[in-house]
Design a protein around this nucleic acid. Structure first.
Lengths: 346, 346
DNA sequence: TTGTATGCGTTATCAC
DNA sequence: GTGATAACGCATACAA
C-alpha cells in the first residue's frame, strides 16, 4: 500500500514534461517549445531549466516518436563485423552521431531467415532509415518497406530495380587495375578466387578480372576460376584446387580479405612461397597486410568515404521527407596499395 | 485538398491495431491479445490474421514501448570496432537477437564528451539495458542512470562502486601466464607495453606481469615499463624507447592487438627480427597473427563466451525487472596460444 | 473470452 | 508567446 510512496529510489517513474511544467509554473506547450529550441520568455526559460535540473528530467524519444514519426535511429543490416564492416561501422556510427542519430544493428551471418527477421524487427521499431547490403531474396520485402516510406540505402551489394539510394565502390575498375598490375608483371596464368557471383560486388570484381584479361589478349580459362564464397575456408579450398592443376596459376587475384587469408594459409601449409612461387593480390586491405612478410598488395576501399557518403545520403534524404525521387547512386574509387606479394613472373 | 486521398501510395499512414480490429470485426483488445500470444477464439484469429495480411499491418514498437516501458533495444557504448570489438559485437548481436532485441551502438573513440553525449542519447531512447566498458569520468552519470532503473553491464573495464552486472576476463591471471611463458624460455629482461593503467584491464594486465616477475624472483625494472596507451602508435613509440636502452629487453609482453601491431612494425623497420633478436607475446589474438611469420604467440580472450555471458546476464536481469540485487560478476578464463614469436633467449 | 475506456509522454493546433 | 487540449498507437483494467 505505502510501497509506492516509500520506494522512491529504485522504481520512481521518471519525470515527465508535465512534471516540469508544473514545477516551473508554465504550460506543457511552453516546455515543449523550449525543448525544441523555440523562443520563449526568458523568465520561463530559467524556471524550466531549473525544474529540469531538480527533477532530473530526460525527454522520452519514444513518446516524441509517436507524434513526430521520427525515432532518430538508423538500422544497419550487415552479414558480419570483420575488418571491413568493423571499420565501416565505426566511421558510420561517428558520422551519423553528428545528426543526433545512432545505429541499430542486426547481424545476419548470410542467413536469409535472419535477414527477414531483421526486416520485421526494423519495421516494428520504426527506424528512420535502413542501410543494408542488397540480397536478391529480400526483394519483395525490401520493396514493401520502401513502399511504406522507409528510406533505404544499399551499399556493397546492389538490389536492382528498387527505388533507393546507393553507395558503392568501383569494384570493376579496381579489380581490373589489380589484375592489370599482375599482367604488367608478366603473369599470364592468373587465377581468381571469386566471391559469390550472385552478389553484384562479386560479379563486378569478376568482370574487372575479365576486362583486364580481355584487353591484354589473355584468353579466359575457366580452370582458373575458383569460387571462394567470400569465406576463409572457401579461400583455402580454392587454392587447394588451383594448386593441383597441370598448369597451376602463377598469380592469384582474391576478391576479399577472408579469402585472401585462407589462400595464404593454404599456400603456407603447402610450402608455396609468396611471392617466389606465386603472386597474390587481394581486394580489400587489412591492417596486418602491411606487416605480413611479404606485404600483401591490396585494393583498399575508401571506407571512411563510404561511411561519410552513407551518412550524407541519409541526412539529406531525411531532411526532405516528402520528396521521393528515383534515388541517387554514389560510386567511389578505390586505391591499389603496392606491396611485396606480387612480383615479376619467372 | 484531395491530395491526401489520392496519394495513397507514398504517404499512406501505416495501418494500426484499430484498422486491423475493424477489418477483422473484433475489438482492439482482442487483436492486442492475439499479438501478444494469448489465446483467442479460432474464428477471430483467422479473421485477424487475414486482416493483418491485407492491411500490411506492422505493430509499432514505439507505441508499445510507451505502455510497457520496454523498447527491446540494448545500448552498447564502445570505443571503437577493431578486431576485438568487431568480433564481440557480432556474437553479441546474434546472441541478443534470440531474445528479440538488437543493439543500439554508440562509438566514442575515447572522447569523454562523446561518452556523455551517448549516455544522454541512450537515456532519451529509453533503452532496456546498457552494455559498456567502464570509464572513471562517467561515474556520476552512470550512477544516475542505474539509479533511474537502467540495468547496466560492464565489460572490459570496471567502474567500481556501482551496482551493476559485470562480465570480465581473468586479465591478471592470463597476463601472468604469458609472462611466465617468457620466463620459462629463459628471458629475464622482459618489457611490458602497457595499456592505460587507469583502466582496470590495463592495471590488471600489468599486475599479472608483475606477479610473474615477482614469483620467479626477477626484479621489477621501471625502465622496462613502456606505456602504449592501447594504440598502434603508442606501441611503436614504446618499442622505440625500449630499443635505445643500454640493456634492451630480450622479450616484450604487449597488452593489446593495436600495440602489438605497432611494436612489430617498429621492430621490422629497425631490422630487429622476431623471434631471433627479440621475443614477443600479445594480449588478444587476431586472425592474421596465425599467418604472420613467425606466428604471434597470444592470449586469446573467449570472445564468444563473453558475448554469451553478456546476453545471458541481460536476459536474466530483464526477466526480473523488480529485483535489484547487488549485481553479479562473471570472470572468464583466457587461453594462451603458443606460436613462434617467443623462443628461448640467447 | 470480448468490448470499452483510459493512460503512456510528447507535439501540434488552436484560441487567448 | 502562452495555456489548454486533442491526437499518436498500443496495452490493460474493468465491466460485460
Amino acid at each position: 500500500m505505502t510501497e509506492e510512496l516509500s520506494d522512491n529510489s529504485s522504481k520512481r517513474r521518471p519525470a515527465t514534461i508535465l512534471d516540469v511544467a508544473r514545477t516551473a509554473n508554465v504550460a506543457v506547450g511552453t516546455v515543449s517549445r523550449y525543448l525544441n529550441g523555440f523562443k520563449i520568455r526568458r523568465a520561463n526559460r530559467e524556471q524550466i531549466e531549473m525544474a529540469i535540473q531538480t527533477l532530473n528530467y530526460t525527454r522520452s524519444a519514444v513518446a516524441a516518436a509517436m507524434k513526430s514519426d521520427l525515432t532518430h535511429v538508423v538500422g544497419l543490416l550487415a552479414p558480419a563485423f570483420d575488418e571491413f564492416h568493423g571499420a565501416m561501422l565505426q566511421h558510420l556510427s561517428q558520422a551519423i552521431r553528428r545528426d543526433g542519430r545512432a545505429l541499430l544493428i542486426y547481424c545476419h551471418g548470410a542467413d536469409a531467415r535472419i535477414m527477414e527477421e531483421a526486416l520485421d524487427y526494423f519495421a516494428t521499431q520504426r527506424i528512420d532509415a535502413l542501410i543494408m547490403a542488397g540480397a536478391e531474396e529480400l526483394y519483395d520485402r525490401v520493396d514493401k518497406l520502401i513502399d511504406s516510406g522507409l528510406p533505404v540505402v544499399f551499399y556493397n551489394n546492389d538490389l536492382k530495380g528498387l527505388t533507393a539510394d546507393r553507395v558503392f565502390v568501383e569494384n570493376r575498375k579496381a579489380s581490373r587495375r589489380a589484375v592489370d598490375h599482375l599482367i604488367d608483371l608478366g603473369h599470364k596464368r592468373i587465377a581468381i578466387i571469386s566471391g559469390d557471383l550472385e552478389h553484384t560486388s562479386g560479379a563486378e570484381r569478376y568482370l574487372g578480372y575479365q576486362d583486364a584479361l580481355n584487353e591484354r589478349g589473355i584468353a579466359l580459362d575457366p580452370k582458373y576460376f575458383a569460387k571462394g564464397s567470400w569465406t576463409m575456408l572457401g579461400g583455402s579450398d580454392a587454392v587447394e584446387k588451383l594448386m593441383v592443376l597441370d598448369e597451376p596459376p602463377t598469380a592469384i587475384f582474391s576478391a576479399s580479405i577472408p579469402m585472401t587469408i585462407g589462400a595464404l594459409k593454404c599456400l603456407k601449409e603447402n610450402g608455396r612461397k609468396v611471392p617466389d612461387d606465386i603472386s597474390i593480390v587481394s581486394f580489400d586491405d587489412a591492417p596486418l597486410f602491411n606487416l605480413h612478410e611479404p606485404g600483401i598488395t591490396a585494393i583498399a576501399q575508401p571506407i571512411e568515404r563510404i561511411a561519410e557518403s552513407l551518412a550524407t545520403v541519409i541526412r539529406e534524404r531525411l531532411a526532405q521527407p516528402d520528396e521521393r525521387p528515383s534515388g541517387r547512386t554514389i560510386n567511389l574509387d578505390c586505391d591499389i596499395i603496392l606491396r611485396g606479394s606480387a612480383r615479376p613472373v619467372g
